[in-house]
Design a protein around this nucleic acid. Structure first.
Lengths: 155, 155
DNA sequence: TTAATCAATACCAAACTGGTATTGATTGCT
DNA sequence: AGCAATCAATACCAGTTTGGTATTGATTAA
């Protein structure tokens, strides 16, 4: 399925909410209510995006969360990596590469290439793009156009 | 991690081997030996790519497998889908979409867009590209170039 | 008929995932 | 100082997925 976890999805939803709130600090409760997620789940989500530096947390009474960067400075890649760690499609393209069939398999470097490509795609889409349908549509079509050209090259 | 399963990786390795063998039928044993995979694992791999129509199987004595299409007609996407089913990054972008927080989440359509994008990337890379380092390098650089342009648009 | 070969399942352990709960540390307020 | 609000760190658990293997059955060439 090549899918990302639900938590990652939630992360984007929460970030969207925080972007909406701007400088206004949001407590776990606030976020849970605004997003419809359970409090426990929100806590788990917050940990990941705080650790990743995408959100700033303030403890204690009157504490809460606020977004750490402008929405156009946060890429989908940032969010995905916050939850799923460094992206590597296969173990071949992971850092600690020790595949038993490496000798008979000349494909490792290629996975790495594909991997890089996906990183670029995800890194090129920001929270802003996702939040604003217009911008998103525009960007989307641009990329599709480019890709159709690429596919011709590929034949 | 956003990763694909090992089986998918094996699938690509096996297809590469079959592409090499061309019209010469390969038995499960042959493939296991050539790739270094266990026989049992090869069997599992074969089922997926046969079901997907990427490989043709012939049963009985003197039977075996041969590749069903030219290597430039098989995309990485084909292989990934053969093993991991239809690609959908999130449940939002899946067919049977029934997310509890849909009302408060305006992001569903955007995941779908990102999803489409990844499909295109993977669909644009063929087994041939992966097997031939030269072609692959060339293609790779083309795509990277294109993407750098896209990222500028995105700022 | 027989041996070679693919097909279909079934099984199991290990890892991962989503979801929840518990306890502890920090901070503003009075 | 003490309290209440709030985030942090873990720990737990059930369900699913994944990787790997084994077993039995169906097909076919010679």
């Amino acid at each position: 399925m090549l899918r990302i976890g639900k938590l990652t999805d939630y992360g984007l939803v929460v970030l969207n909410q925080l972007a909406l709130a701007g400088a206004m600090k949001q407590s776990t409760d606030d976020i849970a209510q605004a997003t419809g997620l359970s409090i426990a789940t929100v806590r788990k989500v917050m940990k990941a995006i705080v650790d990743a530096g995408l959100v700033i947390a303030q403890r204690g009474a009157k504490g809460g969360y606020r977004i750490a960067l402008a929405p156009n400075q946060i890429s989908v890649l940032d969010v995905v990596q916050a939850f799923e760690g460094p992206i590597s499609l296969t173990e071949c393209s992971a850092d600690d590469n020790h595949c038993e069939i490496t000798e008979s398999c000349s494909l490792a470097s290629n996975w790495t290439g594909i991997n890089d490509l996906l990183l670029r795609v995800l890194g090129g889409i920001t929270l802003d793009d996702i939040r604003n349908p217009d911008v998103q549509d525009k960007l989307h079509h641009d990329i599709i156009d480019q890709f159709q050209r690429i596919q011709l090259v590929n034949l």
